[in-house]
Write a protein that binds this DNA or RNA. Structure first.
Lengths: 298, 298
DNA sequence: AGTGCTTGTCAAGGGTCTGTATAGGGTATC
DNA sequence: GATACCCTATACAGACCCTTGACAAGCACT
């Protein structure tokens, strides 16, 4: 995480950079400008990287930017090159807090930070989806109101749909994505579509509560290589299995979501995709579940 | 949407360009010369592009142009501007065709053209909403499949949510927006929220199928000045009217959508908003309904 | 000369942003 | 255990910004 040995305390940083220690703490707590380690006793320990951020901050302030803006720019400059596989600590909590307090601007800011610091797939898998799941669970226990859940879903759905833009472009294989009838949880499916597109697929998205007949017809019409169905409840898949899916041999059916069980997958002769977005996308790309036999076009 | 990173506040722009902050605000409100973002607290944040527009404006003024003319010229030079009150012919048809043939890229392109040539409110009122209505009608007769309808709704919803971003910023009055229980048609409501924000309101959006209790509680908690409820079916409003809305006197209730009838509005003691987005927003802004008999509280 | 529009400026009343300060208490080191 | 340094939490003041509404000078046109 750190690169350089010499770590120093807040007074030393203040002296070097010519900034009061109070201000250093304020910049940290208000804008997250620096990320010092801590001693066992709780003292901040700064690295050279922190120092350079502070100096850059000062330069931008001299340029006339407001403190909030300057800090944002510093962080962006500093983090732009290194998008990580890790979600920064506290970021999910920040998103959660903003969402639950109906703080639209705060939520967008936190999401901006998320998407600018973590790889897209990591952000989706390790931040967005867990957060939504958590909200769903707390909603079930009454700790989160319907309004909070609705607000959060809409905001995140909007962000994901913006990321999704252009997901049908390209020349890869084509997947039709739909929630089975009665299923309204679409955000995981959108996230999956985004990841799948990242692996070269073209996405045709139908979304919430799609009748099976029209999903099948659309897959045929689009000559889809895969039809991905999701549901959080197994019984909805079973209802679909009853009907059967009349799809050409070239079209793989895959199911996912909490309702996608092994038994249901067998009954539907569908590929079972696990909860990991990237793994699921890879699985679909590879063809059959985990077994050989690639899906070729021919 | 905005490329340039460094953003500065109005005082800084005034200093850089040598223009009073009052004048900057006047140029913005009168001619739309600049389009600053806003902080969560409502402060304007200008980009380099805004600065160059201001400088160009000054140059044209020195040349002897009137302020209005100079601003027009600046916006025109800047390309992509001078949005009209008319939707270009054929554009709605192009959108329709792309949507119905699941052509995501084509639909986005057509929507880009729409939003870059027509004023936002005009685009929403005269293109997006009629198109969605038309799809809905053809769906009812079977001329449009569920898949086509789903695909179109999702794509347009994504675009509108992107436009909505930041609609809670600013310092104006606050409106809570929700579809009544059972109501899933949310796109008109999003469009209304966008227009309302354009008139200075801050939007707290709850969306589809919101239980009345939580909508009311959220309005209270947010100290909303207005609660806007929509439904395409009058019976859903009647169900709400039965329950009654326990809101403080300072909160106006407004209803809209195809289900919002005069009788239901009276029974709910709600302001009735017509189908015109801009007019509806103005009505809400004006306080008591302008045309048909003021709706008073208390 | 009168009327109406344009445009830069101003003020009131109030909110936001940000650097600084304080209280009460802990850590590090000799 | 003395001394210098650091911690969190909270408060605060001044600079800065917000909207609304108004006004007067300048101009065009009657």
């Amino acid at each position: 995480m750190d690169g350089s040995r010499p770590l120093f305390r807040i007074g030393e940083l203040g002296r070097r950079a010519g900034v009061s220690v109070e201000l250093l703490r304020a910049w940290e707590s208000r804008y997250g400008l620096v990320e010092p380690q801590r001693t066992a006793g709780g003292f901040r320990l700064y690295s050279d990287r922190d120092e350079s951020r502070v100096r850059r901050m000062q330069a931008l302030l001299r340029q006339g930017l407001s403190a909030a803006q300057a800090a944002r720019d510093v962080l962006e400059e500093d983090g732009l090159n290194r998008r990580t596989k890790v979600v920064p600590e506290g970021l999910v909590a920040a998103i959660d807090e903003a969402l639950l307090s109906f703080d639209e601007a705060g939520a967008h800011d936190a999401l901006d930070r998320l998407f600018s610091t973590a790889e897209l797939e990591v952000a989706l898998q390790n931040a967005i989806l867990p957060e939504l799941r958590s909200i769903g669970e707390r909603w079930a226990t009454g700790a989160v109101s319907v309004a909070q859940e609705h607000f959060s879903s809409t905001l995140i759905r909007g962000r994901l749909l913006a990321l999704a833009r252009g997901w049908d472009r390209g020349r890869g294989r084509r997947a039709v994505l739909a929630c089975v009838p009665g299923e309204l949880h679409d955000i995981g499916l959108i996230a999956f579509g985004i990841v799948l597109h990242g692996q070269g697929w073209r996405i045709l998205y139908l979304g919430q509560d799609t009748p099976i007949g029209t999903a099948v017809a659309t897959s045929r019409r689009a000559r889809a290589d895969a039809l991905v169905l999701v549901s959080v409840e197994a019984r909805r898949f079973r209802a679909v299995a009853e009907e059967g899916l009349d799809l050409p041999r070239g079209t793989t059916v895959a199911i996912s979501g909490a309702g996608a069980t092994t038994s249901v997958a067998q009954r539907m002769r569908a590929m079972l995709l696990g909860p990991d977005l990237t793994a699921g996308a890879a699985q679909l790309t590879a063809g059959r579940s985990a077994a050989p036999r690639g899906v070729r076009r021919g």
